[in-house]
Simulated scan of single mutants.
Amino acid sequence: MNDSIKSASIISESFTPKPLWALKAGDVAPDGSGPVDLDSLPGKKWVEGSPTTTMAANKIYIESEKGEIMKGLLHGPAAMACAPDGNTWIADTLNSRILSVPDKGSSKVIIDLSAVRAEAGLKRLPLPIDIAFGGEGFKKAPEKTLPADYTVWIADASNNCVLSFSISGKFLGAIHSSGKSGDSGSFRQINRIHCDALGRLFVEDLSQSITLCFTAEKSYYLSYKITSAAVDRFGNIHQILYDDNVMERHIAVYDENGNPLEVLATIKASEPIQYVRPVGFDSKGRLHVTWDTASGRFYQAFAQDGTPSVIRMADAVAEGMDMTTPEWVLPDGSIRTVKATARGIVVLEILPALK
């Protein structure tokens, strides 16, 4: 890190999260007919019109590929990710399914993970906890787009494996683990997963505090003692480092083999930092990081040379914006999160696009 590059310490703006769109299960006919009880939706303020407005225009329901309404309520969505093509992928965890949702709400692709249980060789119903994107198509893809053949990777905590699908929902394969320490390529407690531009997969194992690396062909080749990190398009690993100074955190960069490269930048706060984590990368390759202090939640981005953005602060999301709330970065640098109930979810924009 260049000593002249310092983490910005001035908060430029404070933002109030705003609802963007909602997704509701099972209570609206396919043609959108019939009023909806807007009081049941956390995002009711986003809906235009009076409380008797129907949802036909906004398509707030889950529609399968056959045009049918999916039975069953949303249950425990635990992971969300936005692909660079704009689709939001949602792990409806306790229903063992994955939803692909365009930017205004109606689900286009639904992957029923229970339907591939036999084909994938799974002993239990899948429990999806994280989503990543990769595949051969990344090699030719511009920074801001993905080709039609990118792969969707799903971390399955129930079976301790990683499942892969095409964007149309076709099952492509799985990476299984023996769960035994010492076995080559074995992970015991799968957590987050990452993928780079070459289609290499990085699997974090909380139990062993290691990350295991697999080729695009699903072959294990390396592991290293780095977790709770973010992986950029080139396979470089970015991890938050702690020291005795509770007012600072350092961002260390390692190559795809886990070898240290540099300290990219330092996060500087005016109060003790209570919690910090990398959120992800935008289309310009900037790493977005969030941290909490007693005053609230803060966000900052760092360019590939360590140059920091201004610090942005977000008001807390009512009833549950805490360290377990999933957040993700869009290609334009905006930050989103989700509020979930048993009946549906509402996607919130925490921060607008970063210039």
Rank of each mutant, 00 (worst) to 15 (best):
N87G: 00
P102T: 05
V109D: 00
E204V: 08
G135H: 01
R97E: 02
L172C: 10
C213M: 13
E119G: 02
G182R: 12
L212E: 11
L146R: 05
G137N: 08
V101K: 02
A79V: 07
P126W: 03
E136W: 02
T93M: 11
A79C: 05
S158M: 12
S209T: 12
A78C: 08
N160C: 14
V101S: 15
F138P: 00
F165N: 00
K218P: 02
L163Q: 11
S223R: 08
T215S: 15
D130K: 04
E136A: 14
R192W: 06
Y150C: 00
R188H: 03
P77N: 07
I175R: 15
A141N: 08
S164W: 02
K180P: 01
H194N: 11
L146N: 07
D85A: 00
N159S: 07
T93N: 13
N95K: 12
G182V: 15
G185E: 08
I98M: 14
V116L: 02
P142Y: 07
S106Y: 06
A157Q: 13
T211K: 03
I111D: 11
L127C: 11
G199R: 05
A155M: 10
F133A: 01
N160G: 12
A115N: 06
T151S: 14
R192H: 14
F187Y: 12
S164Y: 03
C82H: 11
S107D: 01
C213W: 08
G137F: 01
D196Q: 09
N95R: 14
Y150K: 00
S209H: 08
S114T: 12
R192P: 02
G173A: 08
A174W: 04
A118E: 15
N159K: 02
H176N: 12
H194Q: 12
K104D: 11
C213Y: 06
F171H: 05
